[in-house]
Amino acid sequence: MDVGDNSVTFSRRLFRHIKNVCGEADVQPKVFVFYTPATKCYGFAINVPFDQPTQLADIQYNSKHKCIGFESLNPTVAKILYDYGVSRFLKPCKLTVTTQVTPQGRAYFQIERPHEKYTRNDTSL
């Protein structure tokens, strides 16, 4: 997660997993980012059908950094990291993502709250 441009970058392993869970779609994949009060975690889902206009992000390839991810504007990456208590969120930060399933059987991806000793700042960028 990078506060500088509100981007969320997938690891190659996570991107392959997302493709396996969500399948190959004929439409441009759209990401919906949300907060779950029960777990106190943020998450995102791919290609969620909505009846009304909703803030969605495109999954995009960044040719400059040769990576895949999306831009989170609502909520912003800074808001997510602030709520998670990551005090050094000015640098890119790596967080764990787990696959969850709603009671209706729809898969979504939960951005896990970090444990301070397991949170890593990405110094490669």
Score class of each variant (00 low, 15 high):
F44C: 08
I46Q: 00
F89A: 13
L14F: 01
L95M: 15
R113D: 08
Q110W: 03
K91S: 10
K94M: 05
T102W: 00
R120Y: 05
E24M: 13
F70D: 00
F44I: 07
Q28G: 03
Q52R: 14
D58N: 14
K40A: 14
C93D: 10
L125G: 08
A25Q: 15
S124M: 09
S63K: 14
L125H: 06
V3N: 12
S87Q: 14
L90S: 13
P53G: 00
F44K: 01
E71T: 15
E116I: 08
D122L: 13
E24D: 15
Q52C: 04
P103E: 13
F109I: 02
T98N: 14
D26K: 13
D83W: 01
V86N: 06
P49A: 06
D2S: 15
S87E: 14
K19N: 02
N121H: 07
K40H: 10
L14K: 05
V33L: 11
Y82G: 05
C22F: 05
T119L: 13
V77L: 07
P75C: 10
T39R: 11
N47W: 03
H115R: 13
Y84P: 09
Q52F: 08
Y84Q: 04
R106W: 01
R120V: 07
R88C: 13
N20G: 07
G69I: 07
T119F: 11
I111F: 04
Y84D: 06
R106E: 12
Y108I: 04
N47L: 02
N47F: 01
T102D: 06
F70E: 04
D5M: 13
P75F: 10
G85N: 04
S11F: 01
I59F: 04
S11W: 01
S124F: 09
D58K: 12
R88V: 11
L56F: 12
V27M: 09
Y82P: 00
V8Y: 09
A38S: 15
I59R: 05
K19Y: 00
G4W: 05
T96Q: 11
G85V: 00
Y108M: 02
I68T: 10
